[in-house]
Each structure stands twice: as structure tokens, then as C-alpha cells.
Simulated assay, not measured.
Amino acid sequence: MNELMNHTADMGQAEMFSKAWYNEYFRRAAESPAHARFCEAVYGRDLCQHGMMDVEEMDFLASLLKTGEKVLEIGCSNGHITEHLHEKSACNILGLDYADIAIAQAQARTRDKAATLNFRCADLIQDELPGDDYDVILSIDSIYFMGDYNKTLAKLNAKLRPGGRMIIAAFQVKEDSDPDTILLPGHTRMDEALQALSFRYVQHDFTQNIRNHWIKNYEFSRTLQSEFAAEGNAFLCEARMAENGWFKDHAERGTLVRFMYVIDHNADLAQG
């Protein structure tokens, strides 16, 4: 992740992934026809996304949720994917994000669903996570921003009911200093953290999806560059391009993998 941050800074996106940056991104994306076309082409459906989850992975995630479950989503951005999961699964979902413009968009759009679908602004590092006894906690490409994996996993585990589970989607790249084994199932940094904390889990491989995603992301950001510029939304295209070259390089070299981890609540850890 440090290598990616350095790369985006070199591309003129030094503030990328900050609260202000995400607010500006989602403010513009919500009204951009070029962004809608980009999402349709890259993800398979326009849900005003900024992330890595394509429709196949999203629908697989929805299949893991059960009707009526109490779900906390960490890092929901503008809530479009959260809303899709809510419609597919009939769960009770609370989505959290630190980008207040994204949360305001989600709240306004889903006001008539507030009995079972809600959104709240929260700093995922500084703030106490609201509620407890969750059946499921989702973290889709957000755990990178919450600090140490071990501490974050323990923090999330403490909010689960006995028998609950975490579902975490995370990529892993092999940087020059990493062993080749870091790309193998059971050997990523997420695997190491889960094993160190004695979690039981299964992982589902979405490596081919993520490699295809970044190649399409690279292609269509450039194909639509003039349309973004004509809208006055060069910022959106530049934001995509700042990261997709780095990911495309790893995708083409085969040094990028992605897994979805389904993790059982660890009662011993919660007591300890």
C-alpha cells in the first residue's frame, strides 16, 4: 500500500484517499455521465463505484448474507453497493464512512428505506464503532485504511455476536522485497494476521476478476478522458489514472491477487 501511495503522489494525487479527496470525488461522480459510462464498462453495472468489486464479486457477496441479519459495513462510500446488497439480501444494514458528502448522498437517496438501511459518518480509526452483536461485519477494500491488520481484526471481532462473521475483501501485491509465497492462498498479509489471531476462515479467490478489472480500468479511463474533460471533470479521470497504471502493471506481471475472506467470530479473542 505504501508503494501505491508513493505512486499516486508522483502522479499529482498526493491527497488521494483523504476525506477531502473522497468528498470531491463523490460530489463530482454523482452527476457525471462519463463516470456512469466508466462504471458500466469497468464494473459491469453503474453504481457510482470507486473500488475494485465487479458485479460477479458483488453478487457472490450478497449470496453470503441471510434475510434479517444485522450487518455493519465499514467503508461504504456513497452506499450504492450497500443499497444493492440490502435489496438482494433483505438484511438490516448500517453503513459507515468518513466522507460526509458520500454519506449525505446515501442518506438522501435511501431515506424511505431507513427502517432497515442506514448510513452514518465515522472516522474508522479514531471513532468507536457504533452498536454491537452484529451478525456480519463487511469490510470491502477498507481495511487497508484502518491501520494494523491484527488490531483492526480484533476491533471488528469484538463487535460480532457469538457465531457472527466478518467478510473482508482485500488485494495483495508482491513488491520487490516480498517473498514469492505472499501471493499464495494462506500466505498473504491478511492470512498472516488471521492465523496469528487464531481465526477460522475460508477464502474465495477473485484474482482473475481483479486483474481484468485493472486492465479495463486503465483502458476506459483513457478512452473516456476527453468526455471527462468536456464535463469539467478531468479530476475524476486523473484520479482513476493515478492508480490504475500501478495496478495494471501488477496485473500484467501476475503480482496482484485478491481474496474474499469469510471469518468466524473468535470467542476466545473477544474474552481475552
Rank of each mutant, 00 (worst) to 15 (best):
Q208N: 11
Q208Y: 06
N209P: 08
I210C: 05
R211D: 04
N212W: 03
N212E: 10
H213Y: 04
H213L: 13
H213P: 04
H213G: 02
W214T: 02
W214A: 01
W214N: 01
W214C: 01
I215T: 14
I215G: 11
K216Q: 11
N217H: 15
Y218P: 05
Y218R: 15
Y218N: 15
E219K: 13
F220E: 03
F220G: 02
S221K: 12
T223F: 09
T223G: 06
L224D: 04
L224F: 08
Q225T: 12
Q225F: 12
S226M: 08
S226N: 10
F228C: 01
A229D: 08
A230M: 04
E231L: 03
E231Y: 02
E231K: 06
G232R: 04
N233G: 00
N233F: 02
N233Q: 06
A234P: 04
A234F: 08
A234Y: 04
L236I: 10
L236Q: 10
L236E: 09
E238A: 12
E238R: 13
A239K: 04
A239P: 01
A239S: 11
A239L: 07
R240S: 13
R240E: 13
M241I: 09
M241P: 06
M241H: 01
E243I: 10
E243T: 00
E243Y: 08
N244G: 14
N244P: 09
N244R: 13
N244I: 03
N244A: 10
N244L: 02
G245M: 10
F247G: 06
F247C: 14
K248T: 15
D249M: 13
D249H: 10
D249C: 11
D249V: 08
H250C: 01
H250Q: 11
H250F: 00
A251D: 04
E252G: 08
G254I: 00
G254N: 01
T255R: 09
T255K: 08
L256S: 00
R258A: 12
R258L: 09
R258Q: 12
